[in-house]
Design a protein around this nucleic acid. Structure first.
Lengths: 246, 246
DNA sequence: CTAAATCGTTCGGATATGTTAGACACTCTC
DNA sequence: GAGAGTGTCTAACATATCCGAACGATTTAG
């Protein structure tokens, strides 16, 4: 089914170039101009691509569908209020991440009054080994998957503190299993630290709730444990809501 | 190019049923089981569909792509801070809408401290004739399109106050052109009113900024003009930012 | 202001591609 | 433990995809 793959290649290309006509798409993908036109025309009739005056571009249908998925998801529905409350109480950046295809996806975030402004956005994907939340996923998923990701993946470096060694990562993962939470300093972006706690319902890891704040504030141990306590508190109430309804 | 259309039909179906296997998709779309399987398999390899153990479902790739489109858009970037500020200053719900394919799309929203909680979300689409923001679009788009939408579209009713008569709508649109803003009461949802102001840069309508609040508060005329003044103020600074950079 | 070039779009024929039924292994249900 | 359901895979057929050429319309170059 090359046509479907090609259609999504065109979508990706349209994302990259923002707007293009059949000729440009054709030369970028190495297909004929008329073929490119047929694809673009078909994509237009799905509503995911828009034609203004010969130039084609992606429509906000992606946002519509993506947001619907987000707002319909149970974990978002039951944790939305707690995330807002946690952001208000701590003033920091609170994030809800889920795992999909061995990647961490930022499903939702709320910013507190003194939260740092990262360039993060809902739907953003993050490599799983570069931050506390990702390591929680590694710690709580089925061990075979953990092993596969740790060894197979290339463990790309993001900052100087990023763990790129499989054994070190494995040890951290085991530590997280016993602790029930994860820390990181500077592993994703320099100057930022994260505390992350798993949301486990019926023995299944549903998501990870995290607080991101400047490394400076995190060095204070009493503040750190305070954050962790508040985080765990919210996770507990989210777990109950998820399990027992409403 | 029926395969592309069919692929997106399958995506729509997967949205509706949340999760399904080839057999279920096949019977829903009237195709053979093996065809459904090939489609699902291809969609999976695009990353937009995920296979857990035979059952297929949509991935958050839609959210990722949709959010990227949103966060990259110039109008969002230049108005983000003003929207947050306006929500803080007024305490109400502030919305940024754009028009696409004769529909209004809620690109962004920020909630103030006493804002009413509608079930709105970024990416949500709204019929264009049922609210103040939509009527601003009608007022500021090319007249031929306005006429086409007003007369062609069926003007579906949402509440008792929804304008479903083409002539009434036309008159309102002309009023908005002279006023430079739009009001509505109860036209989208009962008990809610909206004030909407166009964001026009270089003679082109880029988006509409709106404030939604309970009809009760809107009846106070001094409050109404106060809201409108603050709204216009933010729109002016957004316009300048959009036009002259940063 | 004209001419050449490039654009998006349309058409019909060669052929590559999608479609299908059937067979398989597997998992639940009864 | 039998049966009906599932997801997956293969191979042959037929259909729908792909391309080159040609059409206006628009933009660029002279």
């Amino acid at each position: 089914m090359t046509s479907i793959l090609r259609a999504f290649e065109i979508i990706r290309t349209l994302w990259e170039v923002r707007s293009a006509g059949p000729s440009e798409i054709a030369s970028l993908l190495g297909i004929s101009k008329s073929t490119a036109h047929v694809y673009l025309h078909s994509l237009q009739s799905t509503g995911y691509v828009i034609n203004d005056g010969g130039k084609y571009r992606l429509s906000y249908q992606f946002l519509t569908m993506g947001s619907r998925l987000k707002y319909r998801s149970r974990i978002f529905q039951v944790s939305k209020e707690e995330i807002r409350a946690l952001a208000d109480e701590t003033g920091e950046l609170v994030t809800l991440l889920i795992e999909e295809s061995a990647e961490a996806i930022l499903l939702h975030q709320e910013t507190g009054s003194r939260a740092l402004e990262l360039g993060t956005y809902p739907g953003m994907t993050l490599p799983i080994h570069t931050h506390a939340a990702g390591k929680v996923f590694l710690a709580y998923m089925e061990e075979s998957r953990t092993r596969a990701i740790i060894t197979e993946e290339s463990l790309e470096r993001q900052t100087e503190a990023t763990i790129v060694d499989a054994q070190t990562l494995q040890a951290e993962v085991e530590q997280i299993r016993t602790d029930g939470f994860a820390f990181d300093w500077d592993q994703q972006v320099q100057g930022m630290g994260v505390i992350a706690v798993p949301i486990v319902v019926d023995g299944v890891l549903r998501a990870v709730l995290g607080i991101a704040c400047p490394t400076g504030r995190l060095r204070d141990e009493t503040y750190r444990t305070e954050l962790r306590r508040k985080l765990q508190e919210k996770v507990d109430s989210v777990t109950i809501k998820y399990r027992y309804g409403a």
